[in-house]
Design a protein around this nucleic acid. Structure first.
Lengths: 210, 210, 210, 210
DNA sequence: AATGAATGAGCTTTCATTCAT
DNA sequence: CATGAATGAAAGCTCATTCAT
């Protein structure tokens, strides 16, 4: 993240996400998501986004009110998309443990798979979004988070677990989000293997102080 | 992080870190670390740093060659400081498990305690530092990471553990680093309690596939 | 040269040169050439150039990457222009001496006539241009210099002359370039009269040592 | 000229000029003259001058009121020095032609010999000096110029010559000054050889227009 | 919708000069 | 005399945004 791109990429090689069609608007969102991930939001200029799309920077403003709005829409699309995907994935699963596994794997896929650009931006550029837009996004995120908490609650057996569920979620979010900075496909560790490790962590025994 | 400060803070309320004395240079580093954490590196102007120190922006450049050098020095100081602190903390500990607990707690304290500003900057602004400076910092980080890996290896019993040690470290780094975004003192969860949870995660049972 | 302009001139009074049309780009080049001659390159600010053109300083950078590039383009245009003009002027002349006269008069006109601004900048700000741009300009200058050397060679009769041709060219270049600092139209001395004197110098008798 | 020095030179290798003793003041003048020649007046910072002398930039202002005053004093010293040298050189010479030869050689030596730094600055940075200081220097220059005009007049035989003397002086000044940009010792052309060529130019036959 | 020239505020950095020590 | 930290104005340049065409 946050580093000037070495070479000009073609938009064709940047994966889509959400329900982005091949309109100028969709192309802008894809290009922006990619550059925001690689260079950071404030390290990316609207000219760079436009160049990657193949239009002039002035033309961006026919589709979006401001640079910040582009960031907002990228985030909104990815939240909505991920929520839909997650909801479908957890439907009709046999066991609570299976459900938690699926929730973890979904998030790992979201941040390392084809939605990588937008998802990384959502997680790492959260503070670059305006107060008003953040409020709007929060509402959407809650829906997604409810699916997580439901899964974590379902595997619970004792009170200690319940008391620590939201902290565990926060710790897992960090562990998963951070994979964006180091995980690479094809390096011997599969997403399934990673999922196993994170699932193990979720159940990590509570260490009594002595 | 990354949001424009609502009010100008006083430098007196910003904790020091490392071996920063009360020289102009030290004051600049403290102010910069704080603003870089709150607003991000590229979201912070040199004028804001200077204003917080109480000098003119031009005067910054008597102490540092560039804005990026300020970032670099903040990072270097905090790595060196944390390494010294961690090395001292793990010395002469009874058990391997105790050592791992101390390593985890040290990192949690580093990112949530008085070194919070600089440590958060180190972790979240890594990609804002220049290639050359990154190389120099990398060398220093390795020393710190060796202490982590040593602790993780020491609690090992089987081959599976050894094989997964570096991935576990990466996952734990994410979980711990991410606490910067949500953990607050005085909210019922102490650093000790947090340490227990993370230590539990470190030992998370490996989930067999089915 | 090199002195702060007392009053803001109108761009209308600054002569054009080369194939500069009345585009923003052409206007910037004319204004820059004028100010660079009068105040020197490093004594001229981009804000002054913009003010003379009647635009904001930021707008300059839509047309040129940097202040130095403006200098480079001014120089490139004037070299190309002068080479074309000189080549046309020497074509089909009766005698070698006539050719040399024309070459001298062309250079005197270049530095004192309507191309005065750009030509003076070319000669007196040569060291302000970057290494890379200098190399590029050098190639263009060689073409122009070949026309000079050809003319000097053509009037030659003995070996001594041939041996001293390049030094003579250098001395003449200085004599002619320096007229920029003292020659003024309408002061009794015409360009033709000046040409005669310089032509005489070109043929200056070689003084035997005693 | 006007180019950033590639390497830091030692002040010991920079020749002195005029009656500069080895005081801080004298060292500053020598260092400034050198840097002004190589990088231009406005391309040289007071810090660079101070660094070459081996003092802090603030200390310069104990010796000179301003950067511009340093330039002024360099120029004043070299004018005075050259005038003294020239007056001594032309004293008691046998023939008018010999006198002109000596005048030319003196100026060639001034601009290419040990006084090169200061002399080049005098000639090429004339417009960087303030109005007031320029007036003061003009008075001193007139004395020097009188020696030139006297020598040129002395070789005169007809009216045409007398009428063109001041223009010839201007042309010769340019030819001689410009040698600073191309002449190098040890390249086959001696100062004596150069003097002969310039002397020949001084006598250049007047070319009648056909 | 798209262009591309222009804006204008703000950016990092430079630099001659000052002054308490 | 010398220091070196500080000034403060101004430098070159960037960039999100506007708008006539």
């Amino acid at each position: 993240m946050f580093v000037k791109a070495r070479q000009v990429k073609s938009l064709d090689k940047i994966p889509s996400f959400g329900n982005l069609d091949d309109t100028p608007r969709g192309r802008v969102l894809r290009a922006a998501a990619h550059l925001f991930r690689v260079q950071g939001y404030s390290g990316t200029t609207v000219r760079e986004i436009a160049a990657l799309v193949g239009i002039q920077s002035g033309s961006l403003f026919h589709h979006f009110r401001s640079k910040e709005e582009i960031l907002f829409v990228v985030m909104r699309e990815i939240i909505v998309y991920n929520t839909v995907v997650l909801r479908a994935a957890v439907e009709g699963l046999a066991s609570p443990e299976e459900e938690l596994r699926v929730v973890i794997m979904s998030e790992l896929n979201a941040i390392n798979g084809i939605t990588r650009d937008a998802m990384t931006v959502l997680v790492f550029e959260w503070e670059s979004v305006s107060r008003e837009h953040k409020d709007e996004l929060e509402v959407l995120r809650q829906e997604y988070e409810r699916l997580w908490l439901k899964a974590l609650m379902a595997v619970s057996q004792d009170e200690d677990w319940i008391a620590s569920v939201s902290v565990r979620r926060s710790l897992l979010r960090g562990a998963i989000a951070w994979t964006a900075t180091w995980y690479r496909f094809g390096g011997g560790l599969t997403i399934e293997g990673l999922t196993d490790l994170v699932l193990g962590m979720a159940f990590g025994r509570t260490m009594a102080n002595g």
